[in-house]
Amino acid sequence: VFVDDHLLEKVLELNAKGEKRLIKTWSRRSTIVPEMVGHTIAVYNGKQHVPVYITENMVGHKLGEFAP
């Protein structure tokens, strides 16, 4: 499973602090992992960042699938 390192670091850091804030990313190719559930990730679609709230059903899919 591929997840960009910088994105995973941000998610794990927020989980350690117990925070839930918006994470901006250009990494549409990253796979959604269970650690991301409950976070809102702003995924770049080529024009703007689209906020995507991550749920359990999204695990295993790519971030780009949810930012048309």
Rank of each mutant, 00 (worst) to 15 (best):
V3Y: 04
V52C: 12
V33E: 02
K17R: 12
R28E: 02
S30K: 02
S27Q: 04
T55W: 13
T25A: 02
P34T: 12
E65C: 14
E13L: 08
M58H: 14
F2I: 06
I32P: 00
V1A: 15
V11A: 01
V1S: 15
V37C: 13
H61P: 00
P51I: 14
T25P: 01
G64E: 09
D5I: 15
M36T: 01
F66D: 01
R28P: 03
E19A: 08
G38F: 10
K62V: 11
E56L: 13
V50E: 11
T31S: 10
E65D: 06
R28K: 06
I41T: 01
K17Y: 07
E9F: 13
K10S: 14
L63C: 02
L63H: 00
G18A: 07
Y53F: 13
K20F: 11
K20T: 07
W26C: 15
P68E: 09
I23W: 01
E65Y: 12
Y44R: 03
R28F: 05
K47I: 14
L14T: 02
W26L: 08
E56G: 14
F2R: 05
K24F: 15
P51A: 13
E19Q: 13
V33S: 05
N45D: 13
E35G: 07
H6Q: 14
V52H: 03
Y53D: 10
L12F: 06
E19I: 14
H6L: 15
R29W: 12
V37E: 09
Y44M: 05
A42P: 00
D5G: 15
L63T: 05
E56H: 12
W26R: 09
M36S: 01
L7Y: 00
V1D: 15
G60M: 15
L12A: 08
K62L: 12
G18M: 07
L22D: 05
M36I: 02
L12M: 11
F2E: 08
I41A: 01
V1W: 08
G46P: 02
L7K: 00
V3K: 02
V3N: 03
H61T: 09
K62P: 09
M58E: 08
A42K: 04
H61S: 10
M58N: 07
K62Y: 08
T31I: 09
M36C: 03
R21M: 12
N45R: 09
V43P: 06
G46Y: 14
G60R: 07
G64Y: 13
V3E: 05
L8Y: 11
I32D: 00
V1F: 07
N15W: 02
I32A: 04
M36K: 00
V3C: 08
P34W: 13
H6N: 08
M58D: 07
A42N: 04
K10G: 05
K17L: 13
E35M: 12
L14I: 03
P51K: 13
K62M: 11
V3G: 03
L22T: 12
E19W: 05
